[in-house]
Amino acid sequence: MTSPMYILRSPNIAARRIGGELMLMASSNASLYSLNDTAALLWDAADGNTPLDVIVGTLCAQFDVSQDVAYTDACEVVEQLAANGILQLSHAPFQTEGSTS
């Protein structure tokens, strides 16, 4: 069994929805990103404490997608976002403000 994956929004990212589109800017290199709907949902849910499979499960319930396919796609998306410094990934929950662990 694979260990759960946790995702957290990187602290050095600026973000705002401009006309319905989620725009992000990395302070490190001033790169601007536009996230598609799936990536934006993952960004919104990336609290550092909810396992990715639980996030995907919640999204599947909303969008009528099979859990396995959605989880594979989500892993690909979060890895791309992590490669660009937008999300942080871990196999343990992040110590964030308000987390109990």
Partner: peptide, 18 residues
């Protein structure tokens, strides 16, 4: 580019982007 696109959307929708 993305910045121009964002600026245009902000203008169309009356968003105080800066």
């Amino acid at each position: 580019n993305l910045m121009q696109g964002m600026s245009e959307r902000a203008l169309e929708q009356g968003i105080p982007m800066r």
